[in-house]
Design a protein around this nucleic acid. Structure first.
Lengths: 234, 234
DNA sequence: GCAAATTAATGATTTATTCAAG
DNA sequence: CTTGAATAAATCATTAATTTGC
């Protein structure tokens, strides 16, 4: 009879409203910092995590595109039909003569046209809990983690490094703020030349595995660890 | 003339060899723990991070599949040609009669056949640094993080929770070890029923942002944060 | 009204495709 | 050309709406 915690995030109406407002105002692929801010903000209205926010935008964007495509396909289909009608009226031809132009439409109807896909802008995953920064609502429980997380930050942080996305060159001015290094401290480099800073954008997140057993796991055999790998496939 | 740290991971021959051995021995989609182990192990031979290992397996698997597909398509194409030749020899027909069977082949050649795609098994992202656990090689610098990370773990970890993947039901025995909860501690739940445990698989990683400025970021306006969003797109 | 049965939405994951460094 | 990195599309799975028979 226990209420059984739901397995997946279920946005509250307020959360949804805010998310949609943000989306409406142009946010499409929030970066890690933005996701953190949004998450912290929304946590005021209910349980939420970074990954929920990240997924929400991803899904929303994708489904928007999907809708748009369908609409476009429909429109073009009608348009095409219309055109054909006109053509037929002007100069009737055998059916076979009409197929070539139709091919152009198919591309829109075909669910598989991943080519020429314009990458809209760098984005990256962020599955994380609300950070202690930017708690616009206080006393909501979000800052329960603050001490620990802050402590963690203190332990590692140096001066804030900003960096540009690797794939967008020469657009510094536009994206400078959105990108920053999240490298997990510096380790001695083993590679001769590649020194200290391994440049990892926001993807680089500390693995949050408090529940990984701390006991030493079996030393590494160069063979399947759990022997339950999907060697079935292939 | 500075040696300019390379932006992307460049596997050493040893690392590559080991990775390929692992792949050969059946590992396809290592889970977070495995990635950690592999990373720690390979760190002995040079700079490496969890995400490199993760990406390597992902890419290797994908490109293997790709090769296989191409081969299969080729084979089937030849086979088909052969069959047709035989058919033609037996009972010559007009060309038009031969197209239907050909359609079956096209599916293999078409790069867009994501349907009926057999999901091989649960897998998940893991962009993380080698964890302090399982350092099969010691004194290599990898454990430089250990103190900090361990401290972090100590701060948060409760009893190790194991959990099953959500999507594979009734297969407990097979995957039990591969899945575990990595929820970032418990916060008070705002949702009435959904209590404490938000079930997040290994995706759930603590954001590693030591270089995010700790200063309070601008409070949250329900509008683009950096005003540099990709509102260009759409 | 009201559950069981269906269907539609949408959160979460995995795979395919693209970009670009070396 | 190979392959590490990153994003978008496709897919799966669960929850919410909705319908249906009583």
């Amino acid at each position: 009879m226990s209420p059984v915690a739901s397995t997946r995030w279920c946005p509250t109406p307020e959360q949804l409203m805010i998310l949609e407002e943000m989306y409406g105002s142009g946010i499409r692929t929030p970066n890690a910092v933005q996701v953190q801010q949004i998450t912290a903000h929304l946590a005021f209205y209910g349980r939420i995590e970074g990954k929920n926010v990240f997924y929400w935008f991803q899904n929303h964007k994708a489904r928007d595109r999907q809708k748009l495509r369908k609409k476009l396909a429909k429109k073009l289909h009608q348009q095409q039909n219309h055109l054909q009608l006109q053509l037929q009226q002007i100069k009737p031809r055998p059916i076979s003569m009409m197929s070539p132009p139709l091919n152009n439409i198919i591309e829109y109807q075909n669910p598989c046209h991943h080519h020429h896909r314009p990458y809209d802008h760098m984005s990256f995953a962020c599955w994380s809990q609300p950070s202690p920064i930017c708690l616009s609502h206080e006393g909501t429980g979000v800052e329960i983690q603050s001490k620990v997380v802050n402590e963690y930050y203190r332990n590692k942080s140096g001066p804030g490094d900003m960096l540009m996305p690797k794939r967008i060159k020469g657009q510094n001015s536009s994206y400078g703020q959105d990108w920053m290094m999240m490298d997990m401290g510096t380790r001695p480099s083993y590679h001769s030349s590649s020194s200290s800073s391994s440049h990892i954008p926001c993807y680089n997140m500390m693995m949050n595995s408090p529940k990984i057993p701390l006991k030493t796991l079996e030393l590494f055999p160069i063979s399947p660890i759990n022997s339950k790998q999907d060697s079935t496939k292939l």
